[in-house]
Design a protein around this nucleic acid. Structure first.
Lengths: 214, 214
DNA sequence: ACGCATCTCCCTCTCCAGAGGGATGCGTTG
DNA sequence: CAACGCATCCCTCTGGAGAGGGAGATGCGT
C-alpha cells in the first residue's frame, strides 16, 4: 500500500487528486495540507511514502519544503507538480532532491503511474522537462558521434579536474604533478578533443556526459 | 490498453517479463524478439506502444535499434533495461532517444509502473542512474542552495555564450558588442556567481542547468 | 633489441582573460 | 527630480593559458 500526502494550496486540486487516487486500490491519501510548512510537519507525523508537492504555496514553498524533507528519516519520496514546464524552479527542485516532476496538465494515468514509480524509488520526469535536461546528451555534434575520443588515464584525470573548475596550478596540486606536466596533458586533451581552449574542453565534458562519469 | 514488445536475447528474461505482465489487465505483450534487428522490424509491423529493450543483444544492439525507432511514425516509447547502472552505453541510449531506463534488478512493480509511465509519454529513470545524471544539480554548494543568483538579460546572454565555448571576441561579434562591453558583463557574471574565472562560470552553468535553459 | 605510447618535466613566447578602475546615456521608480 | 539599475564603451596592468618546441623514464608488445 502506498501512502500519499497531498500538498497543494488549491483545495480544488487536492479534491481532484483525492478523488482520482480513491480509485486506486494500492494508493491511500493519508493527509492533505495547503502550504509547505504544514507539508513538512505532516510528513514527519504521518510518514507517507510519497508527498505530492505543489511548488507555489503560501507560507513555505514546495522547493524549500522538499529540501527539508530530504533530511527526514525515513525520507518520503517527493513528486513535484508544476504548472509550467518552463518554471524556473524546476532545477531548484531537482537540487532540493525531488524524485519526480509532472505537470498539472498530466493525465490521471500519468500521475498514478508517477506516484507508483517514485514510491518504488525511481524518478519520473515529465517529457517536456526531460528533454531540456537531456538535450545536452543529444547535443553531441554529428562529428562527435562517429569519432571516438580516446584519452589516456592521466588526460582523463586532468579533464575531469578541468570540468571541476580547477586551474592548472590547482590540478597540479591535486594530482601531485608539476604545472608543466599539467599543461602538457591539457595541451593533449585540447588536441584530441579538437577544441581551442579549456573552456571548450569543459563544455565538451558536460555536453558529452564525460563530466558526470566516473 | 498498453501494447508492449519485448526485445531481449535471453528467453528466460522474456519469459519472466511476459509472465509478470500477464498479471496486468491494461498491458499486453504483443510480440517478443531476441535481437535489435528484429526489434526494429517487429516494432514497425506491430506498432507497440512500448518497446522494452535490452542493450546488449546480438545482430544489432539496443542503442542502435532505439536510434532507428525514434524516426518511426508513430514512434514507440522505448524503455531500456540495463544490467548495470554503470553501463557506459546509458548515455548513448539517452542520446539515441530512449524514454526510460530501468535496471534488470528492478522490482516487478517498478517495471510495470515504468511501462505505464513511458506509455503516458513521460520518462522514467532508475534512481541510481538518475543520481548520476542529476548529481550535477545536487552538486551545488550549500552556499548556492540558499542564494538566488539574479543575472540581467545581457549577463545571461553572455553566460550562455560562454557556456557555448565562445571567447570574449566571439561573444562580441555574436551579440554585436565591443569586446570591452563583453568583458564588463563577464566581470559582473563572475562576481554574481562568486567564481574565479570563466571556466568555473561555465561549470556553474552546466551544473545548475543554466546552460540548458532558454 | 627496437619501436611506441605514456607520463613526467622543462624552456620561451604570445596573447587574452580578468582585476580595477572610470564614464556615458537611458529607462524606471520612488 | 534624484536615485538606481542597466547597458554600453574605454583605459591600464598582471597573470596565466596555450603554442611550440625538447627530453628523459618507464613499460609493453613485437
Amino acid at each position: 500500500m502506498i501512502t500519499v500526502l497531498l500538498a497543494d494550496d488549491d483545495s480544488l486540486v487536492r479534491g481532484g487528486l483525492k478523488a482520482l487516487l480513491r480509485g486506486e486500490p494500492d494508493i491511500t491519501v493519508v493527509g492533505e495540507v495547503s502550504n509547505g510548512r504544514d507539508a513538512v510537519a505532516s510528513a514527519h507525523a504521518l510518514r507517507p511514502d510519497v508527498v505530492v508537492m505543489d511548488i507555489r504555496m503560501p507560507v513555505r514553498d514546495g522547493v524549500s519544503a522538499t529540501r527539508e524533507l530530504m533530511s527526514a528519516a525515513p525520507r518520503p519520496r517527493v513528486l513535484v507538480l508544476t504548472t509550467f514546464d518552463l518554471d524556473e524552479v524546476v532545477d531548484d527542485a531537482i537540487a532540493a532532491g525531488a524524485d519526480g516532476f509532472l505537470l498539472k496538465r498530466a493525465s490521471p494515468e500519468e500521475l498514478v503511474a508517477g506516484i507508483r514509480t517514485v514510491a518504488a524509488g525511481d524518478a519520473v520526469i515529465a517529457s517536456s522537462v526531460t528533454r531540456r535536461l537531456f538535450e545536452a546528451h543529444a547535443a553531441r555534434t554529428p562529428a562527435d558521434r562517429g569519432r571516438t575520443v580516446r584519452l589516456t588515464d592521466r588526460e582523463a584525470d586532468v579533464l575531469r579536474a578541468m570540468a571541476g573548475g580547477l586551474s592548472n596550478t590547482e590540478i597540479a596540486r591535486a594530482l601531485h604533478l608539476s604545472v608543466e606536466t599539467v599543461k602538457t596533458h591539457v595541451k593533449h586533451v585540447l588536441t584530441k578533443l579538437e577544441v581551442r581552449d579549456r573552456t571548450q574542453a569543459v563544455v565538451w565534458a558536460y555536453r558529452t556526459g564525460f563530466a558526470y562519469r566516473k
